Simulated assay, not measured.
Amino acid sequence: MALSREEREQFLAEPHVAALSVDAGDGRAPLTVPVWYQYAPGGDIWIHTGKGSRKHQLIEKAGRFTLMIDRVEPTVRYASVEGPVVSTVPSTREHLVEISTRYMPAEKVDGYVEFSEKNHGEAVIITLRPERWVSSDLGAF
């Protein structure tokens, strides 16, 4: 059963790890990698990634990407969202804290942020505008 707009937006707003896919060019399958993302119902979606990383370069070239989010409990449910990139901006410490807080226990966030700032280099925030959705709840098995 397809999810309603409200159901799919609420599902996407939960802190799931997404599979990001982007065109990888001639003769290559799409690059597909796990990512953390940030989303509030009705808004745009953003991801945090290394400046100049392969993922960043491919998204910049393609101008769009897809996120697919799924779960298997309490029901098998998924949502896939695709759309254009609407902005790419330098990441700030506030972005890193926000996305880390979404996915990590509160007591781990400060340590992760410090580690990331020291070891991961410059990062960017890439924002996608949801344009096409595919979603379903297949029930419990």
Rank of each mutant, 00 (worst) to 15 (best):
V109Q: 05
K61F: 06
A29R: 02
P41Q: 14
R54S: 09
S136Q: 10
S4I: 08
G25V: 01
R93I: 03
R54V: 13
E6V: 14
Q38V: 09
R28K: 14
L128R: 01
E114G: 10
A79I: 07
A106D: 14
E73C: 09
L67V: 01
V76Y: 14
T49I: 04
R64A: 09
E94A: 15
T92Y: 08
L128Q: 06
H16W: 07
E122P: 00
P105M: 08
M104F: 13
S80I: 13
V33F: 01
F65R: 03
A13E: 01
R93F: 00
F11G: 05
I69V: 15
R71S: 11
E117C: 09
E98L: 12
R93C: 02
L3C: 10
G43C: 01
V134T: 13
E14N: 12
D23M: 00
T101M: 05
V35Q: 00
P30Y: 00
H56A: 15
F65A: 08
F65D: 02
R64P: 05
I126M: 15
E14C: 12
G63E: 02
Q38D: 06
H48C: 13
A123M: 00
P34Y: 09
G111N: 08
G27C: 03
V89K: 07
P74G: 10
I45H: 00
W36C: 11
T49L: 02
H56I: 01
P34C: 12
S87I: 07
E6T: 12
D23F: 03
E73S: 14
S80W: 07
V81E: 04
L3G: 05
G25R: 04
R132P: 03
M104N: 14
H95C: 04
D70C: 11
A79R: 01
S135V: 11
S80C: 14
V89C: 02
R132I: 10
A106N: 08
P90C: 11
P34D: 11
I99Q: 03
G25A: 07
V124G: 00
P41E: 14
E7A: 15
R5H: 13
S136E: 09
D70E: 15
F11W: 07
H48P: 00
V86N: 11
P84L: 09
H16R: 15
D110N: 13
H95N: 14
D70R: 13
G42D: 03
S80G: 14
K55F: 04
G139Y: 13
T32D: 04
E107R: 13
T32S: 15
I99C: 01
G27F: 03
F141G: 10
I47T: 06
L96P: 00
L67H: 01
G111P: 03
L20V: 13
L96R: 00
G121R: 09
G139D: 10
N119P: 09
L20T: 12
Q10M: 10
T92N: 06
D23P: 06
K108D: 15
V109E: 06
L58E: 11
S80D: 11
G63R: 01
H120Q: 13
P41A: 15
T92M: 05
S91C: 11
E6F: 08
R8N: 07
L31W: 01
S136L: 03
